Computed example of a mutant assay.
Amino acid sequence: MEFLAGGRAEVRITRADVGKRVSVRRRTGGGPGEAAFTDAVGVLTSWEQGVLSITRRSGECVRIEESSLVAAKVVPTRRPTTTPQGASRPFWMAPARRRVPAAGTRELQQVAARGWPAVETERLGEWTLRASGGFTRRANSVLPLGDPGLPLDEALERVERWYGDRGLPAVIVVATGRADTDEELAAELAGRGWRDEAHTRVLISALAPLADTAADTARVTLSREAGAQWLALYNRTGDAPTDQARAVLTGGPSVWFATVRGAEGGTAAIGRLVVDGRWAGFAALEVDPALRRQGLATLVMAALAERALDEGASAAYLQVEADNAGALAFYERLGFSDHHGYHYRRALPGGRD
Rank of each mutant, 00 (worst) to 15 (best):
A71C: 07
G42L: 15
A315F: 01
A40V: 15
G295S: 06
R89A: 00
Y317W: 06
R98K: 15
E60P: 02
R12S: 08
S132Q: 08
Q294K: 11
A206L: 04
A240D: 14
A40R: 12
G42D: 08
L156Y: 14
L318D: 08
R123G: 11
R27S: 14
R15A: 07
E184W: 02
D216N: 09
D196T: 11
E184M: 13
T83Q: 00
G7D: 12
E34P: 01
D276K: 06
A71Y: 04
Y342M: 11
T136P: 00
R130T: 03
S205A: 15
R12D: 02
A215L: 05
T237G: 01
R63Q: 13
V300D: 03
F336A: 06
L207H: 15
H339K: 06
E311F: 01
D239H: 04
R219K: 12
A218S: 15
V202Q: 12
Q110K: 13
L185C: 03
R8N: 07
A315Q: 07
L207T: 10
A215V: 10
A211R: 03
A269H: 04
T81M: 03
L334F: 02
E183V: 09
A5C: 01
T14W: 08
A118D: 05
D288T: 00
A113W: 01
P148V: 06
A16V: 07
A214V: 02
D216Q: 07
R158T: 06
R158H: 11
C61M: 10
A94C: 02
G341F: 01
L124S: 04
D212R: 00
D165S: 15
P32C: 02
S337N: 03
R346M: 11
L299K: 02
A302R: 05
S205C: 08
V171F: 08
L185Q: 07
A16Y: 08
R114A: 12
R56V: 10
P253M: 03
L129F: 03
A190R: 15
A9M: 13
P253T: 08
G134L: 01
H199S: 14
F282V: 14
I13H: 07
G59K: 14
T82F: 00
T237S: 06
A214D: 05
T136Y: 02
F3A: 06
S58I: 13
V119A: 13
T221K: 13
G6T: 08
S132L: 10
A308Q: 03
L291V: 04
T242A: 09
L44C: 02
G149P: 12
P101V: 11
E126S: 13
S314V: 10
V75G: 03
L285S: 06
E184R: 12
W230T: 09
T81V: 10
D153H: 10
A87S: 01
G164I: 13
A112F: 07
R15H: 01
L304I: 07
M1H: 09
P80K: 00
F91I: 04
L145R: 04
V287S: 06
Q110G: 05
F37R: 12
A186F: 10
D338I: 04
G50L: 05
V255P: 02
H199E: 15
